[in-house]
């Protein structure tokens, strides 16, 4: 369970997150979507404690984030690009994470088998291909049966077989009641996996809807089109709001100029009309 309230973060003058309110319950796959630079990764990093928010609060399983680290025992994280010490072998990397976590009961090494990483275990990290590095990172994220799993562009760079194995794994973990939060630019993949879509635009949540609602409500068959329609709607809604706001302003202005006319002042709004 993750609760975020009024989360704000800016890098210098750039407001990356603007008062984010979000609650992520257990046992579901939540997709955080949005254009590049919208603040998805910053949001995830804030929950992981990698980025320190300017204001607002984050609670993970009831613990308020406050520079503490123990709450991360229940979190698995697969970053966009993973890099481990170059001269360690894959096996040593896995051992290292186990060592740091303190060998908890029952590690989950299923992915090593399904990714066929067995033959790579003795190789140094620097000699691995991009896809294999991604696989190691996925193995580490799922290694400790964490209750909450963050996957930042998990299938980018994976071959189709590994990618589908990973998706199977994600679905299986959801069935076990785990919380999965993922970002991706491949919307067909999101449609396949996610129960809920949180769409971030310029640091704000543009919409936050269950997958089925998005599809039913827009009448589209693919998530891509549904998202596009939702954004157009919210944009036109915003435009309407702006328009009505300016109308109200104009009315006020007219009242004002009428008043001035009565007082013998020449109206200036004609040109605007």
């Amino acid at each position: 369970m993750i609760t975020i309230s009024n989360l704000q973060k800016s890098y210098g003058r750039l407001n990356v997150l603007k008062s984010i309110e979000l609650e992520i319950g257990d046992g579901a796959v939540t997709a955080v979507l949005g254009p590049n630079g919208a603040g998805k990764t910053t949001l995830i990093k804030a929950i992981l404690g990698l980025v320190k928010p300017d204001s607002g609060s984050i609670h993970v399983n009831g613990t308020r984030l406050n520079g503490n680290s123990e709450y991360r025992r229940d979190i698995g994280y697969m970053p966009q690009t993973a890099r481990y010490p170059e001269n360690l072998t894959v096996q040593e990397i896995i051992d290292m994470v186990k060592d740091i976590r303190g060998n908890g009961p029952g590690t989950d090494e299923e992915l090593i088998g399904s990714f066929r990483l067995g033959s790579e275990l003795g190789k140094k990290f620097k000699t691995l291909s991009g896809g294999n590095r991604q696989k190691v990172s996925a193995v580490v994220a799922f290694l400790f049966n964490p209750g909450i799993i963050f996957l930042d562009e998990p299938t980018a760079g994976l071959d189709p077989i590994s990618s589908s194995k990973l998706k199977d794994k994600i679905i299986a973990e959801r069935e076990k009641g785990k919380t999965v939060i993922l970002t991706s630019h491949i919307l067909s993949e999101v449609q396949e996996l996610a129960d809920r879509v949180v769409y971030i635009l310029e640091g704000r949540i543009a919409f936050d809807k269950p997958m089925q609602y998005l599809l039913d409500h827009t009448g589209e068959t693919t998530l891509e089109r549904a998202v596009a329609q939702m954004i157009q709607r919210s944009e036109s809604l915003q435009a309407d709001e702006k328009e009505s706001a300016t109308q109200v302003n104009n009315e006020k202005a007219t009242h004002f100029t009428n008043g001035r006319e009565a007082a013998g002042v020449k109206p200036a709004t004609e040109a605007n009309a």
């Binding site: 404690g49 990698l50 680290s69 991360r72 994280y77 890099r83 010490p85 994470v97 740091i100």
Partner: peptide, 12 residues
Amino acid sequence: REYIELLLSQPI
């Protein structure tokens, strides 16, 4: 840099 990110996502 990326390694530090990974380690900081662990309980450290």
